[in-house]
């Protein structure tokens, strides 16, 4: 029986004052052989677990809701507004030969900024707060962490953009369908919905990679905005004729033009068809490879 006066924790304190004279006598020799064994069953950590973890992370912060909410608002709002304006102000007479689905382009172009921001924030906030150390302690396989982030982010952006662009395309074609010369073909539909969504998701992956490389939210977002807008802006001011080729390339390969190509019916100078998607796929792959190498090599 324990009397109330007795101190409840003598076993822990006893090791502090062991008998002297023995070598290493200060080590409390009370540790069970083999150390502590947890009763919680050991389950191997998998990529699936990492994906679930990243999903928990991305859905539990407000910046995700804000950036994606703004993106949805921009893509839907501007896309539908453009359709409404065109349908309201249309003249009766000769039908213009412009592609119908490009009405969704303006909203998507603004939406890219949200995708870039979210892509960078997905990893850079971990560096900003120091959470990355906790994450990498919980999962020493750094490649798995980045893979899970990339998969979750890609699917999230792709899914949301697909829903928005499809909705905009359907509504706009109902509003403006009778006013254009020809209805969009199946390929045009596919490019304007799935193609644009893939393009945006890949652009977001590039932002994620830049965020991993730079580890700083503001810096990475600035770099990505520069990559997106500067070629177009610079090309606007290249008046010298000797720079004409450079100017042309910068115009053609700028991100807004690539997006427009995905909306157009084909006859564009320079690139056409699905090419923008392959370009962005290459950029995102290169960026992610660099991000993997950086994440694995560098101290965090």
């Amino acid at each position: 029986m324990t009397t109330p006066q007795q101190h409840p924790a003598p076993p822990q304190q006893a090791p502090q004052f062991p008998p002297q004279g023995q070598p290493q006598g200060y080590w409390p020799g009370q540790a069970p052989a083999g150390g502590y064994v947890s009763p919680i069953p050991v389950r191997k950590a998998t990529l699936g677990g990492a994906i679930a973890s990243e999903w928990t992370k991305i859905r539990s912060v407000r910046s995700t809701m804000w950036t994606l909410g703004v993106m949805v608002t921009l893509v839907l709002g501007i896309g539908l507004l453009a359709g409404a304006v065109v349908s309201g102000s249309a003249h009766t007479g000769e039908k213009p030969d412009t592609p119908l689905l490009i009405l969704g382009f303006y909203g998507v172009l603004l939406g890219t900024i949200c995708v870039i921001t979210l892509g960078v924030l997905t990893i850079s906030t971990e560096y900003g707060t120091g959470l990355i150390r906790t994450t990498l302690t919980a999962c020493p396989d750094r490649g798995r962490v980045l893979t899970a982030k990339a998969i979750v982010f890609f699917l999230l952006v792709f899914g949301i953009t697909l829903v928005c662009t499809t909705l905009v395309s359907i509504v706009d074609s109902m509003l403006v369908g009778d006013l254009v010369a020809h209805a969009p073909s199946g390929t045009e539909w596919l490019k304007a919905t799935v193609g644009v969504s893939l393009y945006l998701a890949l652009l977001g992956l590039l932002a994620l990679a830049v965020g991993t490389l730079l580890r700083h939210s503001a810096g990475a977002i600035t770099v990505m905005l520069g990559v997106m807008l500067l070629p177009l802006v610079l090309a606007m001011f290249m008046f010298s004729s000797s720079l004409a080729d450079v100017r042309q390339a910068m115009l053609v390969y700028s991100v807004p033009n690539q997006l427009a190509v995905l909306y157009s019916s084909g006859a564009s100078n320079g690139i056409s068809g699905w090419t923008p998607l392959w370009i962005m796929l290459g950029l995102a792959a290169a960026g992610l490879l660099g991000a993997y190498a950086s994440l694995v090599q560098r101290d965090s």
Binding site: I40, K44, A45, G49, A50, S53, T135, A138
Partner: peptide, 9 residues
């Protein structure tokens, strides 16, 4: 999120 990442219930 940490538990999911480490395979902890």
């Amino acid at each position: 999120s940490l538990a999911q990442l480490s395979g902890i219930p």
